[in-house]
């Protein structure tokens, strides 16, 4: 491989993977127990960064997100289950802090909307296709038959 192409390739590979590298928490945040670390990362992805809002605390490098990750690790070390950690954070920051909205009275519509849209859209589609099929099935009478033959003749078709 030509050296300039090699450099370009390396450059592109590094560029492609750098967001992944940036997304992992810094080494001083890694938990000693690898199993715990996996659970911690799972929880980070479930929790919203309350200053950046569209990011989870796993992605965010805001100071508050770092604090929240630290609190999550403390709870895990204290022996909390994943659900207990989430409930603990939710107690302080509300439903908003969860990346997945919980299924409850005020989110019912949110959760059901895709299914309502699917069923509604399906109903429209079925009725449309049925109507098309019905129209295609209409038999031609003698007069239409003669008109069609005349038009075909005119176009030189047989």
């Amino acid at each position: 491989m030509r050296p300039d192409l090699l450099i370009l390739t390396i450059f592109l590979v590094v560029l492609t993977y750098s967001p992944v590298a940036l997304a992992s928490p810094p080494p001083d945040e890694q938990m000693v127990d690898p199993g715990m670390e996996i659970r911690a990362r799972e929880l980070y992805r479930d929790l919203r960064c309350v200053v950046c809002q569209s990011q989870s605390i796993d992605e965010s490098n805001a100071a508050l997100a770092a604090d929240m990750r630290d609190k999550v690790r403390q709870r895990l070390l204290a022996g909390d289950s994943n659900a207990e950690v989430l409930a603990w954070v939710r107690e302080r920051y509300g439903d908003y802090v969860l990346m997945t909205p919980p299924l409850q009275a005020n989110t019912l519509f949110l959760w059901l909307l895709p299914f309502i849209a699917l069923i509604g859209g399906g109903a429209v589609l079925v009725s449309f296709v049925r109507r098309q099929a019905r129209q295609a099935g209409i038999r031609m009478d003698g007069e239409d038959e003669a008109e069609l033959a005349r038009l075909r003749d005119e176009e030189g078709q047989s």
Binding site: L64, D67, R92
Partner: peptide, 13 residues
């Protein structure tokens, strides 16, 4: 300094 009370209070900034 560690934001312990701030976390209990649900501080966002």
């Amino acid at each position: 300094p560690e934001g312990d009370l701030a976390f209990e209070l649900g501080i966002t900034g």
